[in-house]
Design a protein around this nucleic acid. Structure first.
Length: 463
RNA sequence: GGCGGGUUGGCGGAGAGGUUACGCAGCGGAUUGCAAAUCCGUGAAGACCGGUUCGAUUCCGGUACCCGCCUCCA
């Protein structure tokens, strides 16, 4: 069996991956808050963990891997959008409008991530469907002395969990020193975080032993992973920005509510995305969504390829130049493998690269070495979620019958060869090139191919 | 202030204590009326200062610079 090694944030080292049960490998990824279109940074973990999912399925068997990615559909930004719609006169209750908003955002998310060649996880639980499980977990925490209710809130008692801070390598006292935590009079300790908070009439809420309210952000992942994967599972993933406080809090909640388990054995974090060397942010004006890129004509496959050229533990810089280069490579490979039947197995070198902590850049380097064997190239690329049949429309040559132009060019060339005046044939060729046609003239004849920027309207007249 | 990551050839970007990464671009050649495409070949690196070692870009320490998190932004 292929040995997979992963960088485990928990131990800060690359470790051999040993599943709890090779017949049931379980992975949880923190998914999006569904308040709007996913931006490009949201797509990075999706692609990273899609590659890991594909690798696990290959190594352990397709039926032996369970991949869970949640939708956070309880959020103030969602509430704000719904409220704005209601204030603008939209029909339905606030809850209806919230549901409407999250439904449409989830549909967008699926569209956009599908375009990147990301497989859908096995389970995509919505937080709102697990409120009961969250309340049950909070009650367990209170019972065990790890949480306390105050003024309609429930807070996690950080000092009650001695391992708090272990994942992110900090201690509670360190953090108090930096002290950028919300101070609330009802907190026993400034580091204590919210498990449950009260909702007023303008906010969505659920009945609970502590009154009508809504869950804090961290509890949903603890509750859903417990319900779907159990008290101990294999891999927990997400962006490195989630390491603290989100994942730290998840660990505290899960381990205190279910001390019989050990929660996630391997923590895998992807580094952040930058755009042209800078952090993507609205204030810098370099903020854009996956949909923006797709609409600009950047194929999802190109985005995926660019992502995969950088190791997931390194910051990834998105640049227009990389996208252009990636497109060129993919175009070439697609032309090479177009109607080829993929080999039965991907190349061992590609699997070896992936198995070494998801070395996608190394895997792509191996693909370059396979151009002499299109069937193997195709099988290997498809294992990585590239060169898939369903995502190749962008690379198809535009349909155009250029035979009349080819004949004309051939005639002009024949004449030029005879009278040594190449000006007319050069002019005609230049016009074709300007229309996006690739012109190939050899001693065998003339071949015209519609290229990437082909525009039939620009074709030269035949007269 | 606390914690963590990074610095590789013109550009992007990996692995490995000693042997060609790879891709793009460049250069030379074949081919072409000229090109394009294709094929063949090729130069080019490891922020800085020390240490360990027969030997370090790869291990250790320090310096500089960059970046992320500590603000429910992946």
């Amino acid at each position: 069996m292929t040995e997979i090694r992963l960088h485990n944030t928990k131990t800060r080292s690359k470790q051999v991956f040993t599943p709890i049960d090779p017949k049931d490998v379980r992975m949880y990824l923190c998914g999006p808050t569904v308040y709007d279109r996913a931006h490009l940074g949201n797509a990075r973990p999706v692609v990273v963990f899609d590659v890991l999912y594909r690798l696990l399925r290959l190594v352990y068997g397709e039926e032996c891997v369970t991949y869970v990615r949640n939708f956070t559909d309880v959020d103030d930004k969602i509430n704000a959008t719904a409220k704005a719609r209601k204030d603008a006169g939209a029909p339905g209750t606030l809850e209806d409008l919230i549901h409407e908003r999250t439904q449409e955002t989830i549909a967008w998310y699926h569209e956009d991530m599908d375009a990147l060649g990301a497989m859908r996880p096995d389970r995509e639980p919505r937080a709102t469907a697990y409120i009961g499980a969250m309340i049950a977990m909070i009650e367990r925490l209170i019972l065990a002395g790890h949480a306390y209710a105050r003024e309609g809130h429930v807070l996690f008692r950080v000092r009650s969990y001695s391992d708090y801070g272990k994942l992110s390598g900090r201690t509670v006292d360190d953090m108090i020193a930096g002290a950028r935590v919300e101070v609330a009079p009802f907190k026993e300790d400034p580091m204590d975080f919210v498990l449950w908070k009260p909702s007023d009439a303008d906010l969505p809420g659920w009945d609970s032993p502590w009154g009508r309210g809504r869950p804090g952000w961290h509890i949903e992942c603890s509750a859903m992973s417990y319900e779907l994967l159990g008290d101990t599972f294999d891999i927990h993933g997400g962006g490195i920005d989630l390491q603290f406080p989100h994942h730290e809090n998840e660990i505290a909640q899960s381990c205190c509510a279910h001390p019989e388990g050990s929660f996630a054995n391997y923590w895998v974090h992807n580094e952040m995305l930058q755009v042209e060397g800078k952090k993507m942010s609205k204030s810098l004006g370099n903020f854009f969504t996956v949909r923006d890129l797709l609409n600009k004509g950047v194929p999802g496959e190109v985005i995926r390829f660019v992502f995969m050229q950088t190791h997931y533990t390194r910051p990834m810089d998105w640049t227009a130049e990389k996208a252009q280069q990636a497109e060129g490579v993919l175009r070439k490979w697609r032309a090479l493998t177009g109607d080829v039947t993929p080999a039965a197995e991907p190349a061992p070198a590609v699997i070896a690269a992936l198995s070494d902590d998801l070395n996608t850049a190394g895997a792509i380097a191996e693909l370059h070495a396979l151009t002499g064997d299109p069937a193997l190239l195709k099988a290997s690329a498809q294992m990585l979620g590239l060169l898939l049949d369903e995502m190749g429309d962008w690379a198809a040559a535009p349909e155009a019958d250029l035979s009349a132009h080819a004949d004309r060019l051939a005639a002009l060339r024949t004449a030029a060869m005879a009278n040594k005046d190449f000006a007319p044939v050069d002019a005609f060729k230049a016009a074709l090139v300007a229309a996006g046609v690739e012109v190939r003239m050899s001693k065998a004849g003339v071949e015209l191919l519609p290229g990437a920027g082909f525009d039939a309207a620009l074709l030269p007249a035949l007269g």
